[in-house]
Amino acid sequence: MRFWKFCCSLKLAIVLATLATFLLMGGSLLFPGNSQLFDQLDQMVLSDWLVSFANRKLVLSWWFYPFLLLMILLLINTACCFIDWAFHLRSRWRKGGEYLIHLGIVLLLSGYILGALGGWRHIALPCTVGTLTPLLNWPGHYLAVDKFKPVIAPSGQPTDMISEVRLLAGEKLLLAGKVQINQPLLKNGLVITPASFGRKPEGFIFRLKGQPVTLKAGSLIQRQDGSRLKVLRFLPDARLGQNGQILYRSQRLGSPALELSFTTSTGRHWQGWYFLTQPPPPILRELQLRPLQPVFINYSSLTINYDPGARLAAAGGILTAIGCLLALVSFYHKRRKQDRPVI
């Protein structure tokens, strides 16, 4: 009984909340100077951050562990207070609003813990239109952007990013719909929101014997004389390493290169790289290739997160809001009745 009273103790709640407040106050002042560590907190769920980042820089992150412990103890203390109130409902029903807030907070914190342990995040995942983007934190699942349309204001500022997306488990469709700013796609703890957008080079327009052709990965040109040109890969910025291997540098247009497979009209076969900043390899000269301009493709950066505690947290939020309103009503009611001269 004494232990139960200790668990429900108001003073215990104040001590725990005070210690947690001071720890978080002090710890948060480390955030601005150590962005490489603390900016990652929003990029992944808390358990991943603790394992991947906090553990490796304990000098800066040690305070997080006692803070989490205090919050868990506060959660238990709050839950005990609610249970104790529920057992004495007949005599304490007038405090219903306040204790509903307690229950709401218990659910919110539990929802957060559940999400932090069992959830995952992909923040601003670049998804090229028409291709499948694998979700590394959810093996076997893919995100497909079928259409993407940025809405640009006359001032040049983007005002919306509309993507038509599909979420696939292998070939099975799990979720499909439109995603735009402040209108996410939601289902069972999954949320897909737009993050940003951009465009990246996917190939080049060439003049081939006077005719314009677009060459990008997968392009195939079958000529009347029987020769055949196939583009195997396109790299927007590549360089030749010392051992002859191709080094991929960036997504931006720098030193573009095409990996080609060419079969001449006489049946001679060649496969190799063509760096567009240099003259074409001798075997390609008969094609009279002349690069004209790059071809770009839009991509939509999407955030896809899974939070198994989201519904629990939402229930907690609703209960807290109802509790706030009830507490407000009962506060003025008590005032009017003068049953509590001092609050």
Partner: peptide, 13 residues
């Protein structure tokens, strides 16, 4: 925050 960024509590300062 959940609708705009996909998570309902942010650890920004």
């Amino acid at each position: 925050a959940y609708e705009a960024w996909g998570y309902w509590f942010s650890w920004n300062i």
